[in-house]
Computed example of a mutant assay.
Amino acid sequence: MSETHEDDAPQDHDQKGSYVTAGSEFRRDMTYIPDRITRDARDGWPVEAGRYRLIAARACPWANRTLIARRLLGLEEAISVGMPGPTHDKRSWTFDLDEGGRDPVLGYERLQEAYFARFPDYPRGITVPALVDIPTRSVVTNDFSQITLDLATEWAPLHREGAPDLYPEALRAEIDELNDWMLHRVNNGVYKAGFAGTQEAYESAYGELWDALDVLEERLADRRYLMGPAITEADVRLFPTLVRFDAVYYAHFKANRQPLFTMPNLWGYLKDLFQTPGFGDTVDFRQIKEHYYVVQTDINPTQVVPVGPSLERFLEPHGRDGLPTDTWGPGGTAPLPPLAAEVVDPANTPLHLTGR
């Protein structure tokens, strides 16, 4: 399952404008700010409650991972969160959901300001998720792959009692291999299909994506979660892609071999996680659809946002209870409900139908 490379050509993948380059395949810029927040402050950024603000748009799958990890680990009080709106322009994600259009902690209108506070000539995309140092109001890192790993390990002293071990040491090598494979084939695979600039590039990406989904369908036939009976970092990374699949990727990105709900193991797994505290309660389907269908105008020039699909099926029985299960791991417990200020608008999620 291992992959040996990642696309590294510059690609401003989170900004409004041109996503598709005619005559070429999509290549994601994987060069991020490498600084880490650690217990030993090796990069100058110590783990410290209340010092950092996580900027994570609900619309973005890469940011969705950090919201899930923060919830599962109980880091809400240690790391505050700012949530940009689902649509933006070429310059930056904007805090248009906040009163006065400014983040109430940083005072910024645009995430771009936090990047420029540290790097005045920052040459790459202004991406989420991003961790911002509150005292200096400057970005620390936007390395989405490393952020969740550090939340699970470096921030352990501030985890809630009963927090799951999302990155157990004995499974790290296998989790890393699976995550790398999923990144290329699934998480970024949908983008490779959707932003392909040639028929050949599209068909190649489409084939790799569906081959990978078939592998995952088989993997989940006899295990409740990707690594077995307990939730891990691998599930945190796959869920945001799967939950967006039928609503966006199936049609918008032309990943239309079949809807995900027709694949019994993947669909049951997705429903299972959606109904698990910390997963579905981070998902805002209205914001997700507005982001893709409004921002990506070269794919959807009319900016018309689909009404469907029906969301009620996310709450149907998932049928995964008979598989070996230790959801939260030894000594682990479910997270507390989300903070009142972070509850998803009931109009934008099916969870309100059951009062969850």
Rank of each mutant, 00 (worst) to 15 (best):
T297D: 10
I79N: 01
R53I: 06
D8Q: 15
N179Y: 03
T21A: 15
G101R: 09
A234I: 06
D14Y: 09
W45H: 14
L336S: 11
A117Y: 05
H352D: 12
D272Q: 14
S145R: 15
P61V: 01
T31W: 09
F116H: 11
V186G: 00
A22S: 14
F116E: 14
I147C: 01
E342F: 04
L151C: 02
H5E: 13
L67A: 09
T153M: 09
F144G: 10
V140P: 00
Y19P: 00
G332A: 04
E208T: 10
R58C: 00
L97V: 15
D96Q: 08
M227I: 01
W45M: 06
E113N: 09
V294W: 06
E233L: 08
H13S: 12
H352M: 14
D281A: 07
Y293S: 02
I55Q: 04
D40G: 04
G125M: 07
H318D: 11
M1W: 14
T66V: 11
V305I: 03
R71A: 00
G85M: 10
E169T: 13
D96F: 14
E48R: 12
Y249V: 01
E290R: 02
D133T: 13
F119A: 11
V343R: 10
A63D: 05
T354K: 14
D211R: 10
L151Y: 12
E203F: 04
D272C: 13
P168G: 02
F245R: 03
A59K: 09
D43M: 03
T297V: 07
E161D: 14
S24D: 14
F261Y: 15
V294A: 07
V105D: 04
G17A: 05
H13P: 12
V215M: 15
G85A: 09
P123I: 04
I33E: 10
G322C: 11
Q146W: 11
R172A: 05
P10H: 09
E233I: 11
N256P: 06
N142V: 07
M1G: 13
T262C: 01
P129W: 14
D133R: 10
A255I: 01
V304Q: 15
P168C: 02
D14C: 12
I126V: 13
M227K: 02
G101E: 12
A255P: 09
G17M: 03
G319H: 02
P168N: 05
